[in-house]
Computed example of a mutant assay.
Amino acid sequence: MPSGYRSSGIDFDDLFDPYVEGPQAQDSGRRIGGTDLSRRYAHIQYGSKRADVGHRINGMDVSNLWAAKGSAQYDAITIPNPSISGYSYAGAAPNGHAAFSFKSNGMVQTWTNNPNGVTRTFGPWLIRGVASNFEIRYTKIEGDANPSGTGAWLNLGTDRYCGFDVVYGSAGCSLVVEIRRASTGVVLAREDQVYMSASHSRGDTGPIME
């Protein structure tokens, strides 16, 4: 049902994007069935301002409250699979190492000894939005490695590291990686097959592999 509020004969429903999620704008003083229109339209932080519509609150046009029609964009995420394998040898590195981090800047980084330590920016997990709106959980499924950082939901407003060292020999494990919305607990992305392995040779020299 149209809002009943118009500008130049056009209903507000055709001028502003509908509310989907997130914060709501301050009350506009315009209501439908006792509910303020700020519960009906997307906060302007998710989109852009349209031209004034001639309805004001405390001298401010209500077009400053809501996202113009077709402009609202919400958080978007993905989980690039950061499976990694590292090899190192005693003459070049003190241990074998494999790790990755989903970072607060929206990127995924990986580390391996290869042989002296290789850091790579793997790709983005945050396509659009604010990192602290999300939480991540690493769950070990199987394997003889015991990486740090597993088991609990952790807010992505801080870099979240998962990794392990091997003094001699080799170790590995498989993980499930999940990301959920912090405010609702709804899981938005999941990767079931993340593998990590590392090995360390006692020899003074050896091949460099990754």
Rank of each mutant, 00 (worst) to 15 (best):
A182F: 00
S170Y: 12
S201Q: 14
D165K: 12
R202D: 09
D144M: 11
V167D: 01
I136A: 12
Y161G: 00
R190H: 04
V194S: 11
D144Q: 10
L156W: 03
R160L: 08
D144A: 11
Y161P: 03
L188S: 05
V166N: 06
E191H: 12
I141K: 15
N155G: 06
I179D: 00
R137A: 08
R190S: 07
S199Q: 14
S148H: 02
A152T: 09
G157H: 10
L156Q: 00
A145M: 05
G149E: 09
C173E: 03
V177A: 09
A182I: 01
P147I: 06
E178P: 10
Y138A: 04
G203Q: 07
T150M: 04
G203V: 02
W153C: 00
G163L: 05
L188M: 13
I141Y: 04
Y195P: 01
D165R: 14
S183T: 01
G185Y: 04
G203K: 08
T158N: 08
A189E: 07
L156D: 00
Y168A: 12
A182R: 06
E191Y: 08
Y161I: 01
A182T: 00
K140F: 10
R190D: 01
M209V: 12
Q193E: 02
I141D: 03
E191M: 09
S199T: 08
T139Q: 15
G206R: 12
A145K: 04
G206Q: 09
F164K: 06
V187C: 01
D165T: 11
T205K: 12
V186N: 03
G151A: 10
R160I: 06
Y138T: 00
T139V: 15
G143N: 12
Y195L: 10
G163R: 05
V166Q: 07
R190M: 06
V186L: 04
C173P: 07
I179F: 04
A171W: 12
T150W: 03
R160F: 06
H200F: 13
S201P: 09
D192P: 14
S148Y: 03
S201T: 07
Y168Q: 11
V194F: 14
E142T: 04
S199P: 13
C173H: 05
T150R: 02
G169T: 06
I208H: 14
R190P: 07
L188G: 01
E191Q: 13
R137F: 09
Y195A: 02
S148T: 04
S199D: 12
T184L: 02
V176D: 05
N155T: 02
Y195S: 07
N146Q: 15
L156Y: 04
T139R: 15
E191W: 10
E191S: 12
K140G: 05
V177K: 11
I141G: 02
S201C: 13
L188R: 09
C173R: 07
V194I: 15
M209L: 15
R180H: 00
G143V: 10
R181G: 00
E191N: 13
D159A: 13
Y195W: 08
L175T: 09
